[in-house]
Every structure is written in structure tokens, then in C-alpha cells.
Write a protein that binds this DNA or RNA. Structure first.
Lengths: 251, 251
DNA sequence: CGCCCATTTGAAAAATTTCAAACGTAGTGG
DNA sequence: CCACTACGTTTGAAATTTTTCAAATGGGCG
């Protein structure tokens, strides 16, 4: 059960407004199924920026759901190079595949302050067994995750720096909009230029110069960690962005 | 039911020796469950090199399983650039995610002559519903698929051309060995240099020169489409290869 | 104020791409 | 058997993108 340091009404509302909302974006759930899922929430955890939520190679006994904040998944090379595999917003199940795979093949880290809800594997498995639509929703969530990884592979493998960054911002915009966190043309983008480099397979130096071009071309603007997309059609055009892979209803 | 042009004993043996073997590499299935899966095989299809098995954006009513041959999944950019997302050997379920996602977010193409078994979605869904371990096996198969995509993202995003190719060959070797198709140090690798370029995000020209270096360094040898890994430890070292992500038993 | 951290800048080096053409081999048809 | 074609591989040289290295700048915070 959630620690008494966090008001249950707060996290229940957050869980409903983020994770359940996200699942229902692609899979229907009735009130009973939602109640079952709410009942799964075990420990809640607040972690600070850059903290590692799940260590690469670990075998967690619970799946992490992001309730607040901005996080990323990553893989590390022995020499310290890091590839960010995905960014995550409130509502994302960031660890669901650990339910079946056991050990993690990548790490998960907070980018900002985050609130994590842990759903114990055994309870989650029981819920999936008992409710077919819960199993479907979870499976679909991991499949969407895989679809994003494939899209990133295309991004990193084939597009130049300019389109790569443009594509990343389009994705984050659409996802933020769908998650109810700001508009798709204006949202929080707290990743540093180093993070962006690790996500796109580019050097921070090159990210910096490419960002300057995107700003100079009046496609985006940044104020602190707030990113504004000034010209969505042209940015999406430069990115070759098609949101279909995100599997969102109203996209 | 399978067309009479293909001897049922042949395909039944092939299905057993490839796909069921693959599933059982990570998920236990009893005789009854195997029988259920065998009963799902609908149409069988032979296709020639470069033929497209599933069109990007299509909504197939059956999932494809590769029984013979070598295939790839890919995404295309409007300007013709292509990113290969994965290579597939006999036994791979190459289309399972379509079961839940509906429309495909990428294409599937044959590299060599291929034999495809189609498992109708409705029958597959019914089998998954009725047999929890079948559902688990299928889900796990799609999760492994996602793990490979993540590994490729690291590959393309962070490694240089030399390690990228080395890593790809290590992966194919281990998978070929596990699938019972030759040894991990000697197997069929029918992808052309253009294919390899599309898989690694490099130019065919650069692939060619990098291949020459790998051969010159006595790490690999090629005779026709047969690839021999001459020095596994050094190749794996150059690649930074760790087979854990493939989730194979004896790896 | 001083420190930390992220961003920015400059210049040279390196990796990779581009363009263009040649080469080799296998298969086809005369 | 030879010419011809198709396709994948190989080569060369220049252009470009991206990285590397090193240092400066700037904002936020204790």
C-alpha cells in the first residue's frame, strides 16, 4: 500500500488521470477493470533528477508506472556511451515488459523529479489472468512501446540531425498533448542537450548547432525547459512525421 | 488448410522444428498446447526473393510465421531510404504484433525464397484466450522482438561502422545456432551489402569497405552467402556483444 | 559572490557519404 | 560457345556531415 507520506487521494487521482487514461487510449476498460488496476498499486516512490529507477540487468518484482515527471530508458556501453531508447511522460508504463522477461535489458532513469507507482508482478499477473481486457491493454502497451523503438531506429538510422531532432519534438508534442500535459505545440521538454544527443545518436555539440538552426528557422522556441513548436506543419514536414505509430485515438 | 501443393507432412515437420522450437526456447508448452498451435496453420505461401510479405500500413487478418528462408522487416521513407528493423530466420513469428495492433507500422519482405505459414488472427486469439501459456509464449515472442529493436537502436546510435557490422554478425550467428540452422560461427547470411547498409544505417559503399576490414582482420570470411566467423572472441569483443538480450536458453 | 551545470563557440580531425565508374559472376538467349 | 544482361561488389576521389577537443559564456542558486 502507498506510504502515508503521500495522500492516497492524490495518487489515486494521479493514477486514474495518467496510467488508466493512457491504457484507455488504445484499450477499453470498464469500471471494474479500472478498479482492479487501481488496487494493484503497491509502493509509491519519489525520486530526484538523474536517479536510476531500474538498473540494467536487474530483476524487479514490480512494474513501474510513471505518475509524474519525465523519465527515460537507456542502454550503456562499457566506455560510457549511452543510448536513450525512449522518453516517458506521466502515464507511461515504463517497465511492463519486465513482467514476462524477468531481467531488464536496459536501465530506466528519471530526468526530472518523478513519482513512480510500483505494481507488484504477481498481482499484475493475476489481474491479467483474471481479466482478458487487462491483459490485452498491457500487451498493447508493450507493443506500442516496441513500435516507438522501431520508429526511433528509422530516425537514428536514416535521418540527418535536423530531421531527427524535429521528429523527436513532434513525437513528444503529440504524446504530451494526448496525455493531457499541455498542447502538442507547447509542452515541457526537460531533456538537456546531452540527453537529446544520447537519444538521437548525435554529439551534444552537434545537437546545440542543430537546435540553433531549428530556432533560427523559426520552427521551435525554447524558454527554460518549455518547448514551443512555432510552425507545426513545417516541423512535421522536416521530420517526415506521421503519428500513426503512436496508436493514439485522436491523432 | 494448407494447399495441396505442399505436403502436409513437410510443413507440419517444419512448423514443429522451427516455430514451436523457437517458442519453447523461452516458454514451456505441453503436447496439447503444441497441438493447438499446429492446428492454427492456415494458408501456406511460398514467395520469392524481395517479395513483400506484408505491406506497411496493411491490416492483415493472419499472422505470418517464417518456416523457411531469410526475411526482414523494414520502414521506408518517402525519398526511398529504407531502414531494416530486423532480420528473420526460420521459426520467427514475423508479424505477431499485428494480432493486437491491427495495422502494420512497417513492411516485411523476403530476402531469399521463403515459406510462410499464416495463422489466422481469430483462431490465434481464441487459442491465446483458451491457453494461458500460449498467450504468454506469444507475448514473450513480441517482447523479445522489442528487445532486439532496442539493441539495434544502441547499435546504430552509438557504435561505429566496424562494431555495428560485427554486432549484427554476432547476433545472426547466435540466432542461427539457436534455431538449429548451422553453427553460430558458420551460417547463411544472404543479405546483400545494400541490405546490410539499410540495417546498420550506413552506405553500401561504406559497408563494403568495412567488410573488407573485417575480412582483412581475419574476423570473418565469406563464400557466396555463407558467412564464417573466424575468431568469435575478437569479433564479439569488437562488437561489444552480449547475447543476453536474445533471451535464449543456452546462450 | 562564487560555484555548478548547461549551453555556446571555434577550429581541426575523422568518419561517412556522394558520385561515378569498373569489375566479376551467373544466367539467358542466340 | 559466345554475347549480352543483370546484379552485386569493388575502387577512387572529392564533398559533407559529424565528431573531437578545448575553452568561453551564461544563468540559477546557496
Amino acid at each position: 500500500m502507498p506510504p502515508d507520506t503521500i495522500d492516497p487521494r492524490i495518487w489515486a487521482a494521479g493514477f486514474e488521470a495518467t496510467f488508466l487514461r493512457k491504457l484507455q487510449g488504445h484499450s477499453p476498460l470498464d469500471a471494474g477493470e479500472r478498479e482492479v488496476l487501481r488496487g494493484l498499486v503497491g509502493r509509491l516512490e519519489r525520486i530526484g533528477p538523474r536517479a536510476v529507477v531500474v538498473e540494467d540487468g536487474a530483476a524487479p518484482a514490480a512494474a513501474a508506472v510513471l505518475i509524474e515527471g519525465f523519465a527515460c530508458r537507456f542502454k550503456l556501453l562499457p566506455d560510457g556511451r549511452r543510448q536513450i531508447l525512449s522518453f516517458h511522460l506521466a502515464g507511461d508504463g515504463i517497465d511492463l515488459q519486465s513482467l514476462l522477461l524477468g531481467t531488464a535489458d536496459h536501465g530506466i532513469a528519471a530526468v526530472t523529479d518523478c513519482l513512480i507507482a510500483w505494481l507488484p508482478h504477481n498481482a499484475l499477473r493475476a489481474a491479467a489472468r483474471a481479466h482478458e481486457r487487462i491483459a490485452d491493454a498491457l500487451w498493447r502497451e508493450t507493443l506500442t512501446d516496441a513500435a516507438i523503438a522501431r520508429q526511433w531506429l528509422l530516425n537514428v538510422g536514416q535521418r540527418d540531425a535536423y530531421s531527427r531532432l524535429a521528429h523527436l519534438f513532434c513525437e513528444l508534442g503529440v504524446r504530451a498533448g494526448a496525455a493531457g500535459l499541455g498542447r502538442s505545440t507547447g509542452f515541457e521538454m526537460p531533456a538537456t542537450q546531452v540527453d537529446l544527443g544520447d537519444a538521437t545518436g548525435l554529439t551534444p555539440v552537434h545537437i546545440n548547432r542543430t537546435l540553433q538552426r531549428l530556432r533560427g528557422d523559426r520552427l521551435i522556441a525554447q524558454r527554460g525547459t518549455a518547448l514551443t513548436i512555432l510552425d507545426w506543419p513545417r516541423l512535421a514536414g522536416a521530420a517526415g512525421f506521421d503519428p500513426a505509430y503512436l496508436r493514439l485515438r485522436a491523432a
